[in-house]
Design a protein around this nucleic acid. Structure first.
Lengths: 96, 96
DNA sequence: AATTATTGTTTATATTCTAAACTTATTTTA
DNA sequence: TAAAATAAGTTTAGAATATAAACAATAATT
């Protein structure tokens, strides 16, 4: 039987967020917004979901008097992402 | 910006079905059922969705007087799957 | 003849995603 | 300086998906 895919990561936006966070120290809300092309609402929700799953750390602060949301991947999130990739590869045809 | 993932394929069960069909000539309902571990209801629905998207061909016949649903990937479906894989790879970290 | 098995489909519910509206504070402009 | 526009999110409501449970039609078994 095919192995199941982590449902936390198998969502277009959450996967994009984790994928982006995996290769950087941290990223701001607007950076993720731009790179993913998501709406602010959906981004807000999915950041919350990833945080609740323990896959990312979220810091809320202020910069120039404006709210600033900064995200960082957690060890758990990084592990899950690596595992997700390995699992997904079993879905690909041989030689891919 | 990250490229968008084909929403037809970015579903656990539909992806599993296409992934299985990609490497075989054709597959029966029960084979897909076993390999995916899905429920019959969900499998029935997602086979219908893939057919409606033009990603697979579905033949309904009888064998030993029992209904037999046979699925086969279409050229369009195979193309979409190859493209999906390429797109997904851009989500993976470098060197993966 | 009644019960169980086979192969699905349909319906209903739960989950997830997306878009639109809203909030709070800050600039800018008239 | 009051009104309008911008910034950075959040909340809410609607649409799409997925899952599970119930149903249907025929066939085989007891």
């Amino acid at each position: 039987m095919l192995p199941a895919l982590d449902p936390v990561l198998h969502s277009p936006l959450r996967l994009a967020i984790i994928s982006l966070l995996f290769t950087v120290e941290s990223a701001e809300f607007n950076y993720l917004l731009e790179k993913t092309g998501a709406t602010r609402g959906n981004l807000s929700i999915q950041i919350g979901n990833l945080q609740e799953a323990g896959y990312i750390f979220v810091k809320k602060s202020f910069r120039n008097k404006y709210p600033l949301t900064t995200c960082r991947i957690s060890p758990k999130g990084a592990d899950a992402f690596r595992k997700y990739i390995e699992t997904l590869k079993t879905y690909f045809p041989p030689g891919t």
